[in-house]
Amino acid sequence: MSRLTEEPAQRQEIDHDEYDPIGTLALIGLYFLILAFLWVFMYFVEFLGNEPTVVGGFVTVVGVL
C-alpha cells in the first residue's frame, strides 16, 4: 500500500506543528452562529407560533390548585 506524499499542484509541505486551521475555525464559527440562530427561529417562531399546540392536562390541574 502506498500513501500520498506528493500532489502535483502542491507548492509547499506544511506539517502538523506549523499548521493552524484558522480558516476552518472561522468557517465553523459562522456555522455555529447560523445553527444557533436557526434553532431559536425554528423553535420560538415557527413551532411556538404554529398554534394551537398540544398541552398537558396537568396545566389545568396546576391552574386549579
Partner: peptide, 19 residues
C-alpha cells in the same frame, strides 16, 4: 474542513476565507 484547508494552504491558499 481542516483537512481541506491543509490541502488549500499547501497549494498556496491564504487568509481566513481566501484559501
Amino acid at each position: 474542513v481542516a483537512s481541506m484547508e491543509h490541502g488549500a494552504r499547501q497549494r498556496g491558499g491564504t487568509g481566513y476565507f481566501g484559501w
